[in-house]
Design a protein around this nucleic acid. Structure first.
Length: 553
RNA sequence: UGGGCUGUCGCCAAGCGGUAAGGCACGGGGUUUUGAUCUCCGCAUGCCCAGGUUCGAAUCCUGGCAGCCCAGCCA
């Protein structure tokens, strides 16, 4: 591995951090990854995870995992567990595991501070009224009558909100900033709402819950975060982030820096929409291999290293960028090409009888586990008279430049002999159902005498083959940007999953484990399905095809 | 139309006033018992547009144009 591979690519956030360290604005870097536990993490989160944990690690700093659990209606412990698993699987260690709810008491006290400074008030306007009072993008809003309540009245009302004296939605605590601000986030934003919902961690201790804008900056400050990295849509919220920290008694003021969220062609990265795919049954779950979730990618056979590599390659900027699927695919192909052991599997079997081979004959051939890396050793592959080859590897009427098996032609069986097709057997419908061939005994490990055989195809001994189900996944959507559709579900690719019920695998695959991918030579990269595969009913998922410059299907 | 942000190759992306890195994709050559891999070569006289400053501009200034985000008691 060359040293250049370890030098992280330049980006504006790394630049800011390096500069802050040089200027001694900070002596240490502390970041955080703050997911809301309302769904599974997806590839877009991976970008944020790699950034936050990455810049911390590069500077010998710390990164916390903090669940932003201020809206119990949508959140659950199950999602928290899935998130922890995914972050750890990606290869990152958090310094501390925190929850915004850990700070509910402190948050309440800071709210009292704001009230005491005359900077927050309790409003009895309804949600609809607040919306009307807020104004529009081009017109200033108007002040709520509650804005003139005294500090004592506000203190009393806020205490009674907490005490549960009011109905849900009857009151809200608002910051008193500027109803005419061109930044709508500053038009007296809500800080607390009343909501009698059981919280997954605090139970029924609270009936008021703090809003994101109010919670996030204070949580950051309480944890001593130096750089609070978030996506672009929060840029307008930075003024509020700063306003809150400037107006409470706290000695830490993290710097919020925004970067562009990931957009990947042919996928969606919106938890709300991914949730819909799951609940409407378009996929089998959050971890369906077609999902752009970390769990889905893992189940499909993506490695953590390939996802980290992807996140490094796409960069970090403030520009809305669309990443082509080919970038992600290249990352996993590169990893698996280097690391996956090779094996042979026939997806659509065609029976081949080698007539001049003894019917009770058996040879145990040795094949490289990795042709480019002999240190990976060899494996034993049985060869016998009846084998299966891929239906696609025989053509009755070959297209131009076809270099596999044709009637009367020769082809190399990978790691074994050269065979010649003598007879083609078809069923009544004209479909090729069997080939009668002969083999050249003098071609094992050596080139045939006096002629060239161009094609090489994979095969499996019929008697020794393992049956397996193979799931071929394709892109979930037919359009590059499903979000642009009236309903993104209309763009779902009906052929995103093809199930092959009875593929034939070489026997060595019986011991395959879900977390280690294989290259099925000439076909693609596959791994055992972690959920459905059993020793008596193997199930493999296709992670990605091999690059195919000859025939793009 | 108020505010915020962005515009460098088909897709990403370095560049920070000294004369356009790199990756993906694409095209072509070589090696190959995987039409894979590997390898070699090609791929922006130009950086949204127009002016200006300068010996010199993708980088600075001015003015346009285009795109994205914001009017949840969501995050």
């Amino acid at each position: 591995m060359s040293s250049s591979e370890n030098i992280p690519a330049a980006n504006f956030i790394r630049q800011i951090i390096t500069n802050d360290l040089e200027q001694q604005k900070h002596t240490d870097v502390v970041t955080r990854f703050p997911p809301e536990p309302n769904g599974f993490l997806h590839i877009g989160h991976a970008k944020s995870i790699c950034l936050n944990f990455g810049v911390a690690a590069e500077n010998n700093g710390l990164c916390n995992l903090r669940f932003d659990d201020t809206n119990p209606e949508k959140e659950s412990i199950e999602y928290m567990q899935a998130i922890e698993k995914d972050v750890a699987w990606l290869g990152f260690e958090w310094a501390e595991l925190k929850h915004s709810s850990d700070y509910f008491e402190a948050l309440y006290d800071f709210a009292v501070q704001l009230i005491n400074k005359g900077l927050a008030y309790v409003d009895n306007l309804s949600a609809e009224q607040i919306r009307e009072y807020r104004g529009t993008l081009t017109e200033a809003g108007k002040e709520s009558p509650s804005r003139s309540l005294s500090i004592a009245e506000n203190l009393d009302l806020f205490a009674r909100m907490r005490a549960g004296e009011f109905a849900d939605g009857a009151y809200v605590l608002r910051a008193k900033i500027d109803m005419a601000s061109p930044n709508i986030n500053l038009r007296d934003p809500a800080l607390y709402r009343i909501r009698r919902v059981h919280h997954q961690r605090t139970g029924d201790a609270w009936c008021i819950y703090p809003m994101y804008d109010y919670t996030h900056c204070i949580s950051d400050a309480l944890e001593g975060i130096t750089h609070s990295l978030c996506t672009l849509e929060f840029a307008d919220h930075r003024a509020l982030y700063d306003w809150i920290l400037d107006n409470i008694e706290i000695d830490c003021h993290p710097q919020q820096i925004e970067f562009a969220r990931l957009a990947l062609e042919y996928t969606i990265v919106s938890k709300r929409k991914l949730n819909r795919l799951v609940t409407e049954g378009h996929v089998s779950g959050w971890d369906d291999p077609r999902m752009p979730t970390i769990a889905g990618l893992r189940r499909a056979g993506y490695t953590a290293a390939s996802i980290r590599d992807f996140c490094e390659r796409i960069g970090v900027t403030k520009k809305d960028a669309w990443i082509e699927m080919a970038v992600l695919e290249n990352c996993i192909r590169e990893d698996l090409n280097n690391n996956a052991l090779r094996a042979m599997a026939v997806l659509e079997p065609l029976k081949v009888v080698i007539e001049n081979y003894p019917s009770d004959g058996l040879e145990i051939l040795e094949m490289s586990n990795h042709p480019q890396d002999e240190s990976r050793g060899k494996r034993k592959v049985p060869f016998s008279q009846v084998i299966y080859i891929e239906q696609d590897d025989f053509a009755d009427v070959p297209p131009p430049k076809y270099k596999r098996l044709i009637a009367g032609g020769e082809v190399r069986l990978r790691g074994a002999y050269v065979i010649k097709c003598n007879e083609v057997i078809k069923d009544d419908a004209g479909k090729v159902i069997e080939l009668r061939c002969s083999y050249d005994a003098d071609t094992l490990g050596k080139k045939p005498e006096g002629r060239k055989v161009k094609g090489v195809i994979h095969w499996v001994s019929a008697e020794h083959a393992l049956d397996a189900e193979i799931r071929l996944y394709d892109r979930l959507f037919n359009v590059a940007n499903p979000d642009a559709e009236d309903d993104f579900c209309d763009a779902i690719n009906p052929d995103s999953l093809t199930i092959i019920k009875q593929a034939k695998l070489e026997a060595s695959l019986a011991a395959a484990k879900p977390d280690v991918g294989f290259q099925f030579e000439r076909v693609g990269y596959f791994c055992v399905d972690a959920m459905d595969s059993r020793s008596d009913k193997l199930v493999f998922n296709r992670t990605v095809t091999l690059r195919d410059t000859w025939f793009a299907k």
